[in-house]
């Protein structure tokens, strides 16, 4: 039960990452490699602020803002200096490595004695009568785990809703047009370059928010936290798309959240399977493959339609 709650919490917590990748990969059709750096940047910024007792909400917002700036930088390198998006992302991400070290002053920053969003939510839960520990299906579960799950689920849902609303506004339509058909968007007076910079800023802001939440959940920030997050983001998005599809838009965005949760549940399943420790990633990959393939096989049996995911 603890494993399931923890995995679901982590899934909701990583939803902003999936949404960030959704914007860059699905809206702008580009693989933004800034993600690894901006995730770590969000974690580092929030940790550095929390240890000097900045209120958690403010620190989280500033962590997200740092990611937005990183995205703007990648966008500016791409649009102003005519460097490809992937290379621009690599350059920003590489530079962010040093920036993160400067921010934290070292490779690791503990939040053991700092207030975080998670501890604040836990305190609120206790204030409203949530016990320290409770028993669910015969397993002792910490009350704090449930408040953390609730907090992350609420945040993830709000982000999904917010992004869905945004994508349906004139600004969102302009962003989607700039990503889908830049020439046409340009012809109808959309500033495509501006939209790209804005989109990458939003994408990396969401990624940094995921990093900020992750650091608060784990109780520390590390320079290594962002490594491989672009792959995680892509995997979660594709799992979500395979399960929920891409139409309508709201469901497509919701797929980011579903994919993130399902991905962590699959990792939890691999752990629970109790296999050899070295086999964890192999089993996780096989489980993800199973989930991706089943819907496609069904569609294939139905009449050979092209798969939607991936």
């Amino acid at each position: 039960m603890n494993l399931l709650i923890g995995a679901a919490t982590l899934g909701f917590l990583l939803t902003p990452l999936a949404l960030g990748v959704f914007i860059s990969y699905r809206i702008y059709h580009t693989l933004d490699l800034t993600v690894d750096g901006s995730f770590g940047l969000g974690a580092a910024t929030v940790a550095a602020l929390l240890v000097i007792h900045v209120p958690p909400l403010v620190a989280t917002a500033l962590g997200m803002l740092a990611g937005v700036m990183a995205g703007f930088l990648t966008g500016a390198i791409h649009t102003r200096l005519r460097v490809g998006t992937s290379l621009a992302g690599v350059l920003t991400s590489t530079a962010l490595y040093s920036v993160i070290l400067f921010i934290m002053g070292s490779g690791n920053l503990s939040l053991a004695s700092s207030d975080t969003l998670v501890t604040v939510a836990e305190g609120l839960g206790h204030r409203f009568g949530l016990p320290e520990n409770l028993t669910i299906l015969g397993t002792t579960v910490r009350g704090g785990s449930l408040t953390e799950l609730g907090l992350m689920a609420l945040l993830a849902s709000a982000l999904v809703l917010g992004l869905t609303v945004l994508m349906r506004t004139d600004l969102g339509l302009a962003m989607r047009a700039a990503g889908n058909n830049p020439q046409m968007a340009n012809a109808v007076a959309v500033d495509v370059n501006y939209m790209i910079v804005l989109g990458l800023g939003l994408s990396n802001g969401l990624t940094a928010l995921a990093g900020a939440l992750f650091a608060q959940s784990q109780g520390y920030a590390s320079i290594q936290m962002g490594i491989g997050m672009v792959v995680t983001g892509l995997a979660t998005l594709m799992i979500g798309e395979a399960l929920l599809g891409k139409r309508p838009l709201g469901r497509w965005i919701c797929a980011g959240m579903a994919g993130a949760v399902v991905f962590r549940l699959l990792v939890a399943g691999a752990i629970r399977a109790g296999l050899h420790p070295n086999a964890l990633k192999l089993v996780t990959a096989l489980m993800v493959l199973t989930v991706l393939v089943v819907p496609h096989l069904v569609r294939g049996a139905r009449g050979g339609r092209q798969p939607e995911g991936g």
Partner: peptide, 29 residues
């Protein structure tokens, strides 16, 4: 067509993943 519709495919995929995650794989120690 109903049983092989994409919606059912997604449902089957989701159910498979939840089954794996909640340990109905039979491989639990």
């Amino acid at each position: 067509r109903f049983f092989l519709s994409p919606r059912i495919g997604r449902f089957v995929g989701l159910a498979a993943c939840l089954a794996l995650a909640t340990g109905f794989t039979g491989s639990r120690d």
